[in-house]
Structure formats: structure tokens, C-alpha cells
């Protein structure tokens, strides 16, 4: 008994996924809810579109928080998002590659950009790191804006192919053909990323990142290659953010530099992660799934021009009253 209790405590401390029964049941119900959503809303185009975007933003928040887990706050993830979106769109438009190829390639290109950001910014900490990443976005943005022959410049790209289709043994699904299938493709990506993030957190990588975040000087003194792990978390984060950007490009089928490199896609994952709980696995995703639909269904009709004030207000409230995010708070309470 005593031993069991010890193991339990060890697990809760160790894995940020609380392994209690209620947690798994909640997770399962959430999964079923989103799995059945197209049926529940009878394939209502608008509702599904909002939730497809919510899932994509949830994935973006998860990707952002892979770096967040190392203790670094990035204000520059739009660099990876935009580069991913442009890379996938251009590879499709100019080389005629299938999105199945261009989406992972976009992730790799974003990872390359992550390497450059790492070499420039990772020597900094705290607010200095955050500000450096904010400035870093300008690099891919300016390049995209001005390299007209490659990127069509500030005009943006139109006619991007939709999400890809699959064909297995005569079974054929075209993910771009309707919002329902697009929804399921993004849902699948979100679930895969969630699984990967959970895996990273309970692996030695997660342990190293937690040590670095909590006490960097002790971490290096017990043999943790601090900058190596910080770079690794940045690269993973950049890859999945690039994939999110690529999915976005094929989902919306129209991009321009100001849209994909703008502050929006840097700020939103940070806001979701901080509101939901930066140090939890699910918190950032749950925040995205709650806040984005709320923004679209409630605040957008009320305040068409300034609906995004919601994000600012929620961020300030969270920082004032729930510095661990609402998911972190819930977890601590239980």
C-alpha cells in the first residue's frame, strides 16, 4: 500500500499527464466528442471549419510548448509557421509535388530555420531570448516579401492545392474534398502530435528539459548538455510548427506574408499555452479548443472589428490569477 502510494506520487510528479483514472476517462470522452463532432453538428460547414482551425491552433500550441518546456518563451514562431506554409505551397505549385511530400518537407525547412534561430538566439535567456525571437521573424518575412521570383513577393499565393487524398486498395478519401475529411485529417495530426508530446515529456528528454527549466546551473552540473537539449526542443518545436503552417496553407489555399508571418501566429500559441498551463501537456491544447471557438462564435459576431481583444484579456487574467494556467490549476486542485 505504502509502496503503491509512492509509485503513484512518483508518476504524477514524473509524467505531466496525470495518470489517474478520471483523467483517462476525461481524455477518452474528449476524444469521442471530437471524433463524433461532424455527426453532432450534422456536417455544418461553418462549425466544422471553426473546429478544424481550433484543432490546428491546438496543434500549434502543443508544438510551441515543446520549446516552452525548456523554459524558453518564443515570440517568433510565426517564422516557422510562415516558412512551413510557404515551403509547402511553393513546392506544390512550382514542382507539382503532392502535399504528402511537401508537408513533411515544409517541416524540415522550418527545422533548418529553427537551427539558425537556435544559433543566434539560444545563448540568450528569458526576456532577451523572447525579444530576439520576435526580431528573428523578420528574416524569413523579408526574404519572402522580396524574393519575388521565387515567392511571388507580397502578393501572396493563390491556387494552393487542397489537403491531400489517400488511396489504399481502392479505398479513396480526398481530404480536401469536404470540410468533414479536412477536419479528420487535422484531428489525426493533432492526436499524433499529442501522443508525441506526451512521449517526449515522459522520456529522458522531458526530464532534461524540466531540469533545465527549473535549475539550469544544477542541470549542467549533473551532466545535462543544456544547450544541446535546448536546441533539440527548439528543433522539434520548429518542425511541428512548420507542419502546422503547411496544413494551414492547404486548408485555406491562399496565403500572403503578412498573414502567415504576422504577430498573430506567434502570439496565439503562446497565449493558449500560458492560459492553459505551460507546464502541462494538455493545457495548451484545451485552451485552444475553448478559446478559439469562443472567439469565433461569441466575440466575432459581437465585435467584428476587435474580437481578438479576447485573447489579450484572457492572457492578462491568466497571468494575474492563474500563473500555472487553468489546466495546471485544475490539476493542482484535484
Amino acid at each position: 500500500m505504502e509502496n503503491d502510494k509512492k509509485t503513484m506520487n512518483f508518476l504524477t510528479a514524473k509524467n505531466r499527464l496525470n495518470k489517474s483514472k478520471t483523467h483517462w476517462i476525461g481524455l477518452f470522452l474528449g476524444f469521442m466528442l471530437f471524433f463524433a463532432l461532424p455527426l453532432l453538428v450534422q456536417s455544418n460547414h461553418y462549425i466544422l471549419q471553426v473546429f478544424t482551425h481550433a484543432l490546428l491552433l491546438a496543434a500549434l500550441a502543443l508544438a510551441w510548448d515543446l520549446l516552452g518546456a525548456s523554459g524558453s518563451i518564443s515570440l517568433g514562431h510565426a517564422a516557422f509557421f510562415g516558412a512551413g506554409a510557404y515551403a509547402s505551397a511553393l513546392l506544390g505549385l512550382d514542382l507539382g509535388l503532392s502535399p504528402w511530400a511537401t508537408i513533411p518537407l515544409a517541416g524540415l525547412i522550418a527545422t533548418g530555420l529553427g537551427l539558425i534561430m537556435g544559433l543566434i538566439c539560444l545563448r540568450l535567456r528569458g526576456a532577451y531570448f523572447a525579444l530576439a525571437t520576435l526580431a528573428f521573424v523578420e528574416i524569413p518575412w523579408v526574404i519572402t516579401d522580396n524574393w519575388d521570383s521565387l515567392t511571388r513577393g507580397s502578393l501572396g499565393l493563390v491556387g494552393i492545392s487542397g489537403l491531400p487524398s489517400i488511396r489504399i486498395h481502392g479505398f479513396h478519401v480526398d481530404f480536401g474534398s469536404s470540410i468533414v475529411v479536412s477536419y479528420y485529417l487535422i484531428f489525426a495530426y493533432f492526436m499524433i502530435l499529442l501522443g508525441l508530446v506526451a512521449f517526449v515529456h515522459q522520456s529522458n528528454i522531458g526530464l532534461a528539459l524540466q531540469a533545465i527549466r527549473e535549475e539550469e546551473i544544477a542541470a549542467e552540473a549533473v551532466g545535462i548538455h543544456v544547450n544541446g537539449y535546448r536546441l533539440l526542443s527548439l528543433l522539434m518545436s520548429a518542425f511541428f510548427t512548420g507542419v502546422c503552417g503547411a496544413c494551414y496553407a492547404h486548408l485555406v489555399r491562399y496565403i500572403e506574408p503578412g498573414l502567415v508571418y504576422g504577430l498573430h501566429f506567434s502570439a496565439v500559441p503562446m497565449i493558449f499555452a500560458i492560459c492553459g498551463g505551460r507546464l502541462t501537456i494538455l493545457g495548451p491544447a484545451v485552451a485552444a479548443m475553448v478559446l478559439y471557438p469562443m472567439d469565433q462564435f461569441v466575440f466575432h459576431p459581437l465585435l467584428p472589428a476587435g474580437h481578438e481583444f479576447l485573447y489579450g484579456a484572457v492572457l492578462i487574467l491568466a497571468m494575474l490569477f492563474m500563473p500555472n494556467g487553468f489546466w495546471g490549476r485544475l490539476r493542482n486542485a484535484s
Binding site: 510528479a13 526530464l207 535549475e215 544544477a218 552540473a221 545535462i224
Partner: peptide
């Protein structure tokens, strides 16, 4: 360290395991 530097959010056991692992 002269003033100790534990990893405050980890359990005591985990703190030691970090030493073992890395």
C-alpha cells in the same frame, strides 16, 4: 552548491534519478 540547487518541481527521488540518468 553552497546554497543548494534542487529541481524544485521534481520529487526528491527524481532529483537523484536525474543524476543517474545524465
Amino acid at each position: 552548491f553552497q546554497s543548494s540547487r534542487p529541481f524544485p518541481g521534481m520529487s526528491v527521488l527524481q532529483n537523484v534519478m536525474v543524476g543517474h540518468v545524465f
